[in-house]
Design a protein around this nucleic acid. Structure first.
Length: 408
DNA sequence: ACTCCACAGGAATAACCGGGCG
DNA sequence: CGCCCGGTTATTCCTGTGGAGT
């Protein structure tokens, strides 16, 4: 009996290959051959780097743009082409691609660079070890290696903003100044990719000027552009006729409404396709997209909620429990909940701050309303489905007894 | 026209917390 | 180990405000 169920699942997984042709195309790190609507940016980067082919040193480059605007993909793409050219011309160019978010300490970044360059195949006293060297020694060894092998380097640091926050200016400073320490036919050029537009202000002024010799801003895609991108991607990812036009339109509209995030649009498509496959249909429908969005949303909401603090959760519960959603009412309920938990309640000021943060995260919506004689307050409403909150409450040992409080 | 509710939300400041360093 | 430092969290105190009620 159970065997039968399992067999049907597996059988249909084998048989039902009507939708996804190439799953890899829909993953995050897939870089398409040609990037739509980014020719301007591509050429800008290519031009800046092309001086390498004329034996020059390219300017350091700083790239800004919201997530999912194709920054990383464009850079990878340009560099790949450039690499082909330099190989033909016998130019010894290397381009370490470091994601600063993954290697979050400055030393780890040095180590990754060293790994990439293959320094650790060298003699022992020239290696950069996983640990044990001082920052300056590691930098020296890398520079030394570059000098001996006369390598030209274009160092790409993705999500560069995350190391600046964490006291990582020094490493950037060292690298931007490194050119002074090596001879003229070698160089280190830096391409920094940042999600935050304000990141430049946080930089040490010494680094700022040299790092941003050139700048490039990636604007979000429009809905129409997203649509084209999706059409393009669908041709590779899905079998013919598996995905109607209307579905693509919906997908683009959903992603465009928020931030013009192409990654999100493609994510949406992938999850929808998975849902469709599981339900054993031959086509992806608009309903699949909608349930995919729901799944993605509730997953992220669940993530946010489980990771938030106890008091934030209590505030959410108070919002659910409240009738008209005014600050005063919610604070009252909140205090009551705190007393039941034998928790010292936070001040109302702090609670309004938390409410503001939740609003930012999109878990709730707030509206300031004036009630004249009866003052001025917010109308706070839950913006997500109660079921995801329930799920979180159930899993929280302290709060699990509150599940019945929000059940009606 | 004036009052005054019920907060919003800014500024200053204190408490706390995790990581680096001698 | 204690100490310091930067960042976050929370408190205190505060000024500002749109419009129903009078």
């Amino acid at each position: 009996m159970d065997d039968d169920i399992l067999n049907t699942i597996f059988d249909s997984a084998i048989k039902n290959k009507n939708i996804i042709k190439n799953r890899r195309v829909l993953t995050i790190d897939y870089v398409p051959d040609k990037l739509l609507f980014r020719t301007k940016e591509s050429t800008a980067i290519a031009q800046s780097l092309s001086v390498i082919l004329k034996n020059g040193r390219p300017s350091n480059l700083l790239i800004f743009g919201k997530p999912g605007t194709g920054k990383t993909a464009v850079v990878k793409n340009v560099i790949e082409h450039l690499h082909n050219k330099t190989n033909q011309l016998d130019i010894n160019l290397r381009f370490p691609f470091i994601n600063a978010k993954n290697s979050n300490t400055p030393y780890k970044i040095l180590y990754e660079i060293a790994e990439f360059l293959g320094i650790n195949k060298e003699e022992k006293k020239m290696q950069v070890f996983f640990t044990g060297l001082s920052m300056s020694e590691a930098t020296d060894r890398i520079l030394d290696f570059i000098k001996r092998k006369s390598i030209k380097i274009v160092l790409v640091i993705d999500e560069i903003d995350s190391i600046v926050n964490r006291k990582g200016d020094d490493i950037l400073y060292n690298f931007t100044r490194a050119n002074e320490r090596i001879s003229s036919d070698q160089f280190i050029s830096l391409i920094g990719i940042s999600n935050s537009l304000t990141f430049k202000d946080k930089l040490d002024p010494r680094v700022k000027s040299s790092l941003s010799e050139e700048e490039l801003v990636f604007n979000p895609y429009t809905v129409e552009q997203l649509k084209q991108i999706l059409i393009d991607r669908c041709k590779l990812a899905f079998y013919e006729n598996a995905i109607p036009m209307g579905v693509i339109n919906l997908c683009a509209a959903i992603a465009g409404r928020e931030t013009g995030d192409a990654r999100k649009a493609i994510d949406l498509l992938r999850v929808a396709a998975e849902i469709a496959e599981r339900s054993m249909t031959k086509k992806i429908t608009e309903d699949h997209i909608r349930s995919a969005q729901q799944k993605i949303d509730s997953d992220t909401n669940f993530e946010i909620l489980t990771n938030s603090t106890l008091h934030t959760k209590i505030v959410i519960l108070s919002i659910i429990k409240s009738k008209n959603g005014s600050t005063g009412e919610i604070y009252g309920i909140y205090q009551y909940f705190c007393s039941r938990l034998e928790q010292e309640p936070l001040t109302q000021r702090r609670m309004t701050q938390i409410v503001g943060e939740l609003d930012q995260l999109g878990l709730i919506t707030t509206n300031i309303i004036n009630q004249g004689r009866y003052g001025r307050t917010q109308r706070i409403k839950l913006h997500i489905h109660i079921s995801s909150v329930k799920e979180v409450v159930k899993n929280d040992p302290l709060l699990s007894s509150f599940i019945k409080d929000i059940s009606n």
